[in-house]
Design a protein around this nucleic acid. Sequence first.
DNA 1: ATCAGTATACTTTTT
DNA 2: GTATACTGAT
Length: 789
Amino acid sequence: MAARARAGIAPAAEAAYLAGLNPEQREAVETLDGPLLVLAGAGTGKTRVLTARVAHILATGRAFPSQILVVTFTNKAAREMKERIHAMVGDQVEGMPWLGTFHSIGVRILRRHHELVGLKSGFTILDTDDQIRLLKQLLAAENIDEKRWPARLLASTIDGWKNRGLSPKDVPPGEGAVFANGKGGMLYAAYQARLKALNAVDFGDLLLEGIRLFRENPDVLAEYHRRFKYLLVDEYQDTNVAQYLWLRLLAQGSKNVCCVGDDDQSIYGWRGAEVDNILRFESDFPGAKVIRLERNYRSTGHILASASHLIAHNEGRLGKTLFSEGEEGERVTVTGAWDSGEEARAVGEEIEALQRAGHRLSEIAILVRASFQMREFEDRFVTLGLNYRVIGGPRFYERAEIRDALAYLRCVNSAADDLAFERIVNVPKRGIGDATVKQIHDVARAAGVPLQEAARALAQSEELKPKVRATMRGLIEAFDRWREQARTLSHTELAEIVLDESGYTEMWQKDRSAEAAGRLENLKELVRSMEPFENLAGFLEHIALVMDTDNGAGEDAVQVMTLHSAKGLEFDTVFLPGWEEGLFPHQRALDEQGKAGLEEERRLAYVGITRARASARIWFASNRRIHGLWNSTVPSRFLDELPDAHVRVEESRGGMGWGGSSYGGGSYGQSRFDRAEPFAASSYSTPGWQRAQNNRGRSDGGGPSRSGFSERSGGRYDAGAAGRRGPMVIEGTLVASSTGAPSSFRTGERVFHIKFGYGEITGIDGNKLTVQFDKAGEKRVLEAFVDRV
DNA sequence: ATCAGTATACTTTTT
DNA sequence: GTATACTGAT
C-alpha cells in the first residue's frame, strides 16, 4: 500500500503481478519513466521484476504490446521471458513482436530496411563455419600463409572489431596492422565486400549494420523512436559495445530504458562483453535511477556469505550486499582429493548418498571450469550407473550432418548461396574434387554469377571430363527438380526427398562407424524440427538465429555443465570441482587478461557458489593430468578468499585424501604461503613434495622460471594485488611448464615420483623424462616432479 | 581423389 | 591423452 502511494500509481485493484514483490522489486516495477538500472544480485528475482514490469506497463495502459522492446541474449532467455509474461498477461504477449534476442530483433529491423544498407531481400546469415571458409578463401587469394595467420584468428579479430562497433574504416590503423603484417584492416574490408557480394551478413553485422542504418537514416531511427515507448534489457552486464550503441540509439527516443543486470556476474568479457557498460550506466543515461535488489531468495546464509566474501575481493564493482532471511543452512565445504580420479570417485559417492537420502538427481549439479573436466565424472557415473546429463557441449546445429543437410536446403532455397553449394558439391563424394571446384570458381568469378550458375555452364561446356560433366549435370538437374517440387510439396517432404535423392542419407547408411546411426537419427530429428515452420525460408532463418535445441528436461539426472552455462540456473546441491591454481583461476585468463582476467574468474566462482540453494561443495585435487602429463597442483587462491566462519574443510573419505590435515586447522585469511611450514608432518613430506617446494622457492630468484605462471603474468598480477591486499602474492604455482633447458638427469638413473613411486629413467626429452616405473609402468613425466634416489 | 599417418593444440560460448 | 587438421603417399 505504502509503495503504491509513494509511486503515485493507483490501479483499481491490487494487481496480481505486484503481489509478493518486496519494496525494492516493486519500485523497480513501478518506476516507468526515464532510464533505470536494476542491479539485481544473484537470486534476487530479476526475471520476476522484468516480467512484472512488462505486465505493469500493459496494465496501466502506458503502451501497447507492440510498443515494448524486450531484449535478451539467448533464445532460451527470450523464450522463458515470453512464457512468464504470458502467465501474467495472457495472450497479449502474442502481440509483442519485439521480444527477442539482440540478434533476432536486429535481423527483423534489417529485413525491413535491407535496401538502405545495401542488401537484397532474402539475404542470408552466415554462421561461424561459413565465415571461416570465406576468410580462408580471402587469405589464399592474398597469398597469406594460413599456417602463420589462421583464418580462425582473423575471424575472431574481425568479430572483436564488430563487437566494439568498428566497421573497416573505424579500425585503428595500428590494430588493423597486427594481422598478417599490416593486412588485417584490408582483409576486414575485403571480407565485408565479399559478404555484400554474397548478399550475406554475419552475426556481428546484424547489430553493426543496424547501427549504420540508424545513423545514416534519421527518419528510420525516428520511426523506431515513435514505436518503442519502453525498452527493457536483460543481463545488461553482458552487452558489448555494439549492443550498447545500438541500444542507446533506440533509447534516445522515449528514454524509458530499463536495464537489469549484475556486474558481479559478468563472465563473458572474453567475447566482448563490457562490464563498463553497466558500471557507466548513470553517466551514459543522464538522470538514470539505480535500484539495487539485494534480498536473496535462493541460497542459505552460509552459501550467501561465502559468495559475498569471495566477490568482495574484486575491485571494479558497483557493490551490493546480499542478504537473506532464510536459514543459515550448512556450511560450504572444501574438500581435497589426491587426484582428479579420486575427486570424481568421491563426488560420485556423495551423489549416491544424496540419492539414497531421497534427493532428486536433477537437483544436483556439477559445475566445472573447463569441459575436459567433465569426462572423468562421466566415466565415473557410467560405472556407477548414475543418470547424468551434460548440458552444453557440441550443439545440434554444429554437427557435420546437420550442417550438410542444411547446406542442401539452402542451395534449394537460394541458387545464389555459394557457401552452401561449396560445402555439399562433393558430399557425398561424387568425384568433384578441388580441381573441379576451382574451375567452377574461375567461371563464376569471370562471369560474375553464383557458383551454381557457373557449374551449370560448365556442365554444358566441353571443359570437363565426361564423367565429371555427367555428375555435375546430374547435380544441377537435381537442384532444378527440387526447386520445382518445392512449389508443390511441404517443406518437410521436400527435405526428405532432397536428403534421399542427393545420396546423403545413403552415405551415412553405408558408413560402418559407430556414430553413423546417431547421425541418421539427427537427420530425422532435423526434418521433424522443420514441421512447425510455414516454409523452408522461414525454417532456415530460424535455424540461423536459434541454434539451440532444447533437449527437454527429460528424466531425473545429475546435471553436468561448465560454470558459464550454469549462469541463470539453480540447484539444491552444487559440486564445484577443480578449484586449483591454473585451472581455476584459469592460467590463460591470468596470462592474457591479467588482473581483469582474475576478476572475471572470481566472478565465475561467485556465479558457481550462488547457484546452490542448500549445499555448495567445493573440491580440489592435488594432482591433475594436464595435456597428458601429471602435474602437482596448488589449491585455488579463491579458497583463501572464502570466509572461515562459513566454510568447513572436510577430509576426503575415499582413498588417501590430499593429506593436508594441517590445512583445515589453519586460517584461511592469508595466503598459505605465508606460513613457514605449510604442511609439516603431512604426507607431503615426500621427496617429490619437497622438491616441488624447493622449486617454488627458487622461482623468485630470477633464474628461468619453472612455474606455470610466466614471469610476465606473475609479475603483472602481483603488481596489482600486492598494492591493495598485501599477502595475496603467489609467486609461482607448482604447475611446471616446458622449458628448453637441458635436463640434469641421465638415463639409467633411479628416481622417485610423487604419484608413480620409484622407477628408472629410460629417455630424456628436454625437461620431460620417460621413466619405467616399478609399479606404474612407463610414463612420461616432467623432470620437476621426480627426485633422484 | 582418397586415405593414412603425423603434427598440433588444448577455457569459457551465443548469436 | 586425445581429437582434429593437414600433408604426403597411393
